[in-house]
Structures are given as C-alpha cells and as structure tokens.
Amino acid sequence: MQETAPVKYQLNLKGVVIRNIVDFDPVTDQLCPFNFTADNTELNPEILADTAVFSDWINSQLAKTNARYGIGGYDEHRTIYARSSHFDAHADAEPRRLHLGVDIWGPAGTKVYNFYTAVVHSFKNNNNFGDYGATIILEYNIKGQVFYVLYGHLSLASIADLQVGQKIPKGTAFATFGTPEENGNWPPHLHFQVIRKLFDAVGDYPGVCPFTQKEPFLLNSPDPSVILKHTFKAALR
C-alpha cells in the first residue's frame, strides 16, 4: 500500500558528486522537450498505433530541433498510453495515464551510465506490448538515503549477465537503450524513475498510475531532475 502525504518528497543530494546518465555535452548538444499530453494534437492515434511510424515521428522531432535527445514526462498526464491495453484497468476502473519518471529519447544502443555507485536490486524482461521490456532496478544509499532507480526500455543484452547484489560503480556504462523489439515496443528511450520504497516489487514497479492516485505515487517516486540536472545542466528546463 502506498503512503500518503500532502507534500512531495525530494532527495537531498547537496554536495554529492553525480555522474552523467548518458553522454551529453551541455555546451554543444541540444535537448528536445516532448509533450505527450492531450495538448499534442500532432501525435494522432494513427502514429501511435504503429511503433515504426511513432519512432519516425520521434526522430523527426529530434532532427527538426537539432537535438541529441528528447526529454520529458515527469508528472505528465499522457494520452499515449491508450496505444496499449497494458495501461487499461479491468472493468470500469480508471486507466493508468500519469507518468512517474522521466523519459530520455535517443537511438537504440545509447549507453546508460550509473550516476552513483549502487548494487543490483533486481532485473527482469517485462515483455508485454507497451511495458518496460528489459528492466534494471539499482539500489542506492546516498547520505543515509536508501532509494532505488528503475531503468526501463533497455536492451536484452543489458540484463544478460547481471546478478542480484552485483556492485555497479559510479560512472560505469551498465546498459543500453533497447530496440522496439526488446523494449516493450516503444521508440528507443530510457525510462528513469526514482523510487523510495519498492514494497514487494522485483524487476518491475509502476511507471504510470491512475490520475486520481497521483499524490501517493508521486510521493514514492520523487522528481528525478535532482539527478538528471547533473547530466543536462542548463539544457534541462
């Protein structure tokens, strides 16, 4: 059961040296902010229905803005999840549409680095249409704060040789963005989500929740920009 509170939680990383998540030069590289809410009328159901067409759309937006990556999604009420029944509730219950992490959109094969030394909590191939595909959850202990980060939509090679409890040093390239065939049928990207408590979850945790339950879920998955800002610097708005 999720805990509730009237305010959002934020990690205290003051004074902590945080490494890059992906290769990015804030001086020369650009970020393209993506909006996947109902306000984005260009992204129609026909595009979303075909992963290859959806991927072409993502790539066209990156090319149009001369951006190395696309980014966005925390606390975003998204329409794109209607493309998969994975996010639809049973019977008349509310579907899941509120995104709990940040997505970094870029080419398959993009290296993912560990921002701080951690150990492997769990990993899994969540192989459903619209799901995470290959997924890794790392456990961190920073300034006495124990928390987890879920890395989703990875390549299958990223989890092939992992072991639970394995140490992943700071700065290590430990994973890569997966292709649609192995990442849950999405255009290549990384789902990056901070999680305070996993409860009994192993290799998986909701990255999208019903809108009416946003308060407890956002409390348990605080804004990851406190980590990602060290990679993207001023480019992260």
Score class of each variant (00 low, 15 high):
D25K: 03
T79W: 07
A82G: 06
C32A: 06
A49T: 02
R196A: 10
L13I: 14
Y148F: 15
N20I: 10
L98I: 04
V102E: 01
D25Q: 04
G106N: 01
G203W: 14
I142L: 13
V146R: 13
P107A: 06
C32I: 14
A235V: 05
D223Q: 02
A157H: 08
A89C: 06
D56V: 14
F217S: 00
G101L: 01
F54L: 13
D39E: 14
D39G: 12
H189F: 08
K233Y: 00
L150S: 10
D25I: 14
L156E: 10
F34Q: 11
K14N: 14
L98N: 12
N66P: 03
L98E: 05
D56Q: 08
P187Q: 03
H86Q: 09
Y9T: 10
H153W: 11
A108D: 02
G106I: 05
S85A: 07
N20V: 01
F24W: 08
P224F: 00
N20C: 07
P95I: 08
F34M: 02
A235L: 11
G203D: 15
V112C: 06
Q193K: 13
L31R: 10
T135M: 01
V164Y: 13
I58F: 09
R97I: 04
L219C: 06
C209Y: 10
T110R: 13
D56Y: 12
D75C: 09
L48S: 07
L11N: 11
V22Q: 05
P188M: 11
Q2K: 04
Y151E: 05
F123S: 09
S85K: 07
G72D: 09
R83G: 04
F24T: 10
L162S: 03
K143N: 01
H230P: 08
L13A: 10
N126E: 02
G178V: 02
W186K: 03
E182K: 07
G72Y: 01
G109A: 06
T65I: 09
A67F: 05
A82I: 07
A67D: 12
N35L: 11
V120H: 05
E94D: 00
T172G: 05
F54Q: 04
V53G: 01
G106M: 00
S155F: 10
N35K: 12
V102Q: 08
E76V: 15
H90T: 10
A5Y: 12
S155C: 07
I168H: 00
Y69T: 13
V146F: 05
L48Y: 02
C32M: 08
A235D: 13
N220Y: 01
H189R: 03
P210G: 12
V164Q: 15
F174K: 06
N185M: 04
I18E: 00
K214A: 14
T231D: 13
I18D: 03
D25H: 02
G109W: 01
K197F: 12
A235C: 05
S55W: 09
I80L: 11
N125Y: 15
L236S: 09
L219I: 01
D39K: 14
I137F: 12
Q2D: 04
A108C: 10
I136P: 07
P187F: 06
A108P: 09
A160E: 13
Q30D: 00
G165T: 14
